[in-house]
Nucleic acid binder design. Structure first.
Lengths: 213, 213
DNA sequence: CATTGTGAACTCATTCACAGCG
DNA sequence: CGCTGTGAATGAGTTCACAATG
């Protein structure tokens, strides 16, 4: 199956969830897990788990289930998180600072190797993780020197498009955008938006309409 | 159409995007907007915009488009963001602090009215927005006193389920979960997860597989 | 006559159901 | 016998295409 098959985006998202549950299960001493149990932990359908994995190979043993450690390694390879990725963070306010010193990111191989801002007060200072805050003007050079592959935008909305343009100009074509602005990028560049207020709007809507799903 | 129709979750998400673009357009002085223009700004299909709005009523004028201000008000009502919502934030680390003083939240009517932690060093101190940090033990009482309707979890993963249980016990049935843990809640409670590493995993996957969509 | 509103067609994702296998 | 792997069936969401209309 795993040939020229197109993978649903939702599948990739779920693989990340499976991976995290497997980490927890390994920590708890489990050696094997069934699709049913993994599905329960991730709050999805067991057939979904099997189908998701089926896109990439046959990792289970019939009658037994999946080897916890083995499946972890396979998903790691699939998601390409069996290596480190260098991030550059632009906008060193509270949120940017939080990311710079965020334990989970580093533990998962996402290293914030550079921090940028445009505030002269901040430039040259040491950020929370002991990293030097650079002028945004240096971004293009830093991308090359430090091999930054993923750009993180934690600026106000008004600056987001400009920062995105600088990233693209510097040949960074993956962006994690925490600003509420919807940035426009060329096809070569991929963007993931993390927008707090959208999620709160959804909760407000559901509370008001008394829905749960 | 707008009767007992089931609304796709994605529609609600997009309404939030439309709303933000409309805010920007009003600021820029636009009086009307077509589904085509709004769609372009939000990077969706024009028919999608019309269909999304169609679930809730007829807000446009054929041959003209939508009145920017009027549509804003309509979406505000639909999303139930034409009022204030009180949030309680648990886990006052870097991320929790960032949320407490986050301008956008307050501007949109999401007020962080209470902050909680379990660290004796922090309890009693004033958080970044000048709010007193309370003992997590006080949560149940504070929920009633301050009318907290949405719980925000910014603790480490290990504490997330406990905090969720406390929220549910206190009758808060909307939770915004920033921890990477997948929390289990009863049906009456709705959860939105905001998980940085999942999004980074997706970017890593796409970079590795050179996909863009 | 430009643009909405919407049934119908289509595409994509999830779930079922069972054959296949250790 | 139990659980995986997967084609087929179902369901959900998106896009098309055009009639309706200010």
């Amino acid at each position: 199956m795993r040939k020229t098959m197109k993978i649903p985006r939702a599948t990739v998202t779920r693989l990340s969830l499976y991976y995290r549950q497997l980490e927890l299960m390994e920590f708890d001493g489990y050696r094997t897990v069934s699709s049913e149990k993994l599905a329960w932990l991730c709050q999805v359908n067991p057939a979904q788990v099997r189908k998701d994995l089926g896109y990439f190979g046959e990792f289970g043993v019939r009658g037994v289930g999946y080897d916890v450690r083995e499946l972890q390694n396979q998903i790691k390879k699939i998601l390409a998180i069996n290596r480190e990725w260098n991030l550059g963070v632009v906008g060193i306010g509270k949120l940017g600072s939080a990311l710079l010193q965020h334990r989970n990111l580093l533990a998962r191989g996402f290293r914030c190797v550079a921090a940028f801002d445009n505030d002269p007060e901040k430039i040259g200072q040491l950020g929370p993780s002991g990293i030097r805050i650079r002028d945004i003007e240096e971004l293009s050079r830093a991308v090359k020197e430090l091999n930054i592959e993923i750009g993180v935008i934690t600026t106000p909305a008004s600056a987001a498009q400009y920062v995105a343009d600088v990233f693209i100009e510097a040949d960074v074509n993956a962006i994690l955008n925490f600003s509420p602005a919807r940035i426009q990028v060329p096809d070569c560049c991929m963007v993931e938006n993390i927008d707090f207020t959208v999620r709160l709007d959804i909760l407000a809507y559901k509370l008001h309409h008394e829905i749960n799903s």
